[in-house]
Amino acid sequence: KQVQVGDEKYTFDTPEEARKFAEKVAKEKNLKVTEKNGNFHVE
C-alpha cells in the first residue's frame, strides 16, 4: 500500500501501517487523509 504526501510516495506492507503513517503525517502537517483505490493520500 502506498501513502502519497505531496510528490513523495511511501510504500508499506499492510494497509494498517500505511494508514497509521498517513494519519501521523496529516496530524503533523495539519492536513487530511483521503483513501483512493486502497492507497492513502495526505493533502
Rank of each mutant, 00 (worst) to 15 (best):
30 N>L: 06
25 V>C: 10
24 K>Y: 09
26 A>Q: 03
34 T>W: 10
6 G>N: 07
22 A>G: 00
43 E>M: 12
30 N>C: 10
16 E>A: 08
32 K>L: 10
40 F>H: 03
1 K>V: 15
20 K>D: 12
40 F>K: 02
19 R>Y: 09
42 V>T: 04
26 A>G: 05
5 V>N: 02
34 T>I: 14
31 L>P: 03
9 K>E: 08
16 E>M: 06
9 K>M: 14
38 G>N: 06
18 A>H: 00
33 V>L: 09
39 N>D: 09
20 K>Y: 11
22 A>Y: 04
42 V>K: 02
6 G>R: 05
4 Q>F: 15
4 Q>T: 14
4 Q>V: 15
20 K>C: 08
33 V>A: 05
10 Y>K: 02
31 L>V: 08
34 T>R: 07
37 N>R: 03
9 K>T: 15
11 T>L: 13
43 E>R: 07
8 E>N: 12
4 Q>K: 07
31 L>S: 08
37 N>D: 14
24 K>G: 08
25 V>G: 00
14 T>F: 05
28 E>L: 08
18 A>P: 00
27 K>I: 11
40 F>G: 03
41 H>S: 10
35 E>N: 09
8 E>D: 12
25 V>W: 08
3 V>A: 02
31 L>C: 09
42 V>C: 06
22 A>H: 01
37 N>M: 06
29 K>C: 13
38 G>V: 01
33 V>C: 07
8 E>W: 11
18 A>F: 00
34 T>Y: 14
26 A>I: 03
14 T>H: 06
37 N>S: 05
9 K>V: 15
8 E>Q: 14
13 D>M: 08
19 R>W: 09
35 E>R: 06
37 N>E: 10
37 N>T: 04
7 D>R: 10
26 A>Y: 02
6 G>D: 07
1 K>M: 13
17 E>R: 03
5 V>G: 01
37 N>C: 09
34 T>D: 05
43 E>D: 12
29 K>N: 14
1 K>A: 15
41 H>M: 12
24 K>D: 10
13 D>E: 11
34 T>Q: 07
11 T>Q: 11
15 P>S: 13
38 G>Q: 04
1 K>I: 15
32 K>Q: 12
7 D>F: 10
19 R>K: 11
13 D>K: 10
42 V>Q: 02
21 F>D: 01
5 V>E: 02
27 K>H: 11
22 A>D: 00
4 Q>C: 13
33 V>H: 02
15 P>K: 13
28 E>K: 06
31 L>F: 09
1 K>E: 04
13 D>G: 10
5 V>Q: 02
41 H>I: 15
15 P>C: 09
9 K>H: 13
19 R>M: 08
38 G>P: 02
18 A>Q: 01
1 K>Q: 10
41 H>Y: 15
25 V>D: 02
36 K>T: 09
2 Q>P: 03
31 L>H: 07
36 K>I: 14
24 K>W: 12
14 T>L: 05
29 K>Y: 14
15 P>W: 14
20 K>R: 13
8 E>M: 14
28 E>N: 07
2 Q>C: 11
34 T>N: 09
13 D>Q: 10
27 K>A: 13
32 K>C: 12
10 Y>C: 05
2 Q>T: 15
27 K>S: 12
11 T>V: 13
32 K>A: 10
4 Q>M: 15
27 K>E: 11
18 A>N: 00
35 E>G: 04
15 P>Q: 13
22 A>P: 00
17 E>T: 04
43 E>L: 11
11 T>P: 04
22 A>M: 04
15 P>R: 15
9 K>G: 05
2 Q>N: 10
20 K>E: 13
17 E>Y: 00
24 K>N: 09
9 K>N: 10
29 K>I: 06
20 K>G: 08
6 G>T: 02
43 E>Y: 13
40 F>M: 05
5 V>R: 02
3 V>M: 01
35 E>D: 07
4 Q>A: 07
10 Y>I: 04
41 H>F: 15
24 K>T: 11
39 N>Y: 13
25 V>Q: 06
6 G>A: 06
36 K>E: 09
32 K>Y: 10
9 K>S: 12
29 K>L: 15
5 V>A: 03
33 V>Q: 02
40 F>N: 02
13 D>L: 09
33 V>D: 04
18 A>V: 01
36 K>Q: 09
1 K>T: 15
32 K>R: 10
38 G>D: 05
23 E>Q: 09
12 F>A: 01
27 K>C: 11
11 T>G: 06
37 N>H: 08
40 F>D: 03
1 K>H: 15
30 N>F: 07
34 T>E: 07
29 K>F: 14
36 K>Y: 12
